[in-house]
């Protein structure tokens, strides 16, 4: 498969499902089966619990995660003891999950595991940094239901998106909704100097004026539109938290922000609807991100858990045309 070649160029990749049962675990197993282990040392983990035999929410059957000899993996204590392979334990971390500490091990034989890695984005980042000591070349992270924000580009360099009938049962709607997410993922990265400013800001909304001075607009999040403006004209607006419709409309109406660039931390922080976002961009406001991960591929699962089956070929073709990227049905391949 072509996207494996692309994947191994990066040091980390998260596999993100737009909805449960969009074939994320199938995608993970697909990738793990094909990675060239003679060239690369691979480590696998997930955000929170994944790899259950039965889906915890919809009680439908789910595939297990199959590891190959030599792969490293991180999972919770409870799931480690349930592993079905021979492995060597290399670390028990202080990172805690509801199923015990996160442990890291190396598979000595092929076999199956249940994945349940660190339950927060920062915990996962800590694990990713710590495991580099074992000479890992590529880290694969399995996202989980509605945890898009944790599978944020801040954590991984590249990304594979899984979508499918579970996200929407109508091909057109599915394509539209997926294309919007792809559009967000592909948002341009802002300048290095802006990235440095974003690194220093931990909360709130800040504006860089034409003179290059940074102003705190004294809002706790962009959910609030009560802005304190004591400058003439804004060049760049930095939004730390969620970017909402309400906030965008407010900025659009204010002359101070005319043609200002809007910078968000990463695409997962954008909660605005397509229409509002498009009309905001159309009046000359570029939206850029401080952290961006490269979208490598989009995979689809045409079957939804409630039995709806979409036409696979048509879905792949329509979606591929809409997003200008190859789309794969891994169930079929």
């Amino acid at each position: 498969m072509p996207f494996i070649n692309e994947l191994i160029k990066h040091s980390s990749c998260s596999i993100v499902g737009l909805e449960k049962n969009t074939g994320k675990t199938v995608c993970l197993n697909y990738v793990l089966r094909r990675l060239p282990l003679d060239k690369k040392t691979i480590a696998v983990s997930s955000i929170g619990i994944d790899g259950e035999n039965t889906d915890q929410v919809t009680l439908t059957s789910k595939p297990e995660i199959v590891l190959r000899k030599g792969m490293f993996f991180a999972t919770s204590e409870k799931h480690y003891l349930m592993r079905r392979l021979v492995s060597e334990l290399v670390d028990v971390s202080d990172e805690n999950t509801s199923l015990g500490h996160v442990v890291t091990a190396k598979a000595l034989t092929p076999g199956k595991i249940l994945l349940s890695g660190p339950s927060s984005g920062t915990g996962l980042k800590r694990w990713m940094d710590s495991i580099k000591d074992f000479g890992i070349d590529l880290i694969i992270v399995d996202g989980a239901l509605s945890r898009m924000s944790l599978a944020s580009p801040a954590i991984s360099e590249s990304m594979i998106l899984s979508t499918g009938a579970a996200y929407s049962a109508n091909i057109n709607t599915l394509v539209q909704k997926t294309a919007f997410v792809v559009e967000l993922i592909n948002l341009e990265k802002t300048s290095e100097s802006n990235c440095r400013i974003m690194d220093q800001i931990n909360n709130g909304v800040w504006a860089l004026d034409q003179e290059g001075l940074l102003h705190d607009l004294k809002v706790s999040s962009s959910l609030s539109t009560d802005l304190k403006i004591d400058f003439e004209s804004c060049r760049t607006l930095f939004v730390n938290g969620a970017l909402t419709d309400n906030f965008l409309k407010h900025i659009k109406q204010n002359r101070v922000f005319k043609e200002a660039e809007l910078v968000v931390r990463d695409f997962t922080k954008i909660f605005a609807t397509p229409l509002v976002l498009k009309s905001f961009v159309s009046v000359g406001h570029p939206i850029r991100v401080a952290q961006k991960s490269k979208l490598i591929a989009v995979t689809v699962n045409p079957t939804s858990p409630n039995g709806i089956v979409l036409d696979s070929d048509k879905l792949c073709k329509t979606l591929s045309e809409a997003i200008q990227l190859p789309v794969y049905d891994l169930m079929k391949n």
């Binding site: 000899k69 079905r84 392979l85 021979v86 000595l108 034989t109 092929p110 076999g111 199956k112």
Partner: peptide, 8 residues
């Protein structure tokens, strides 16, 4: 035996 096998 297990190590030499590609499958579980």
């Amino acid at each position: 035996n297990m190590k030499n096998s590609e499958v579980f």
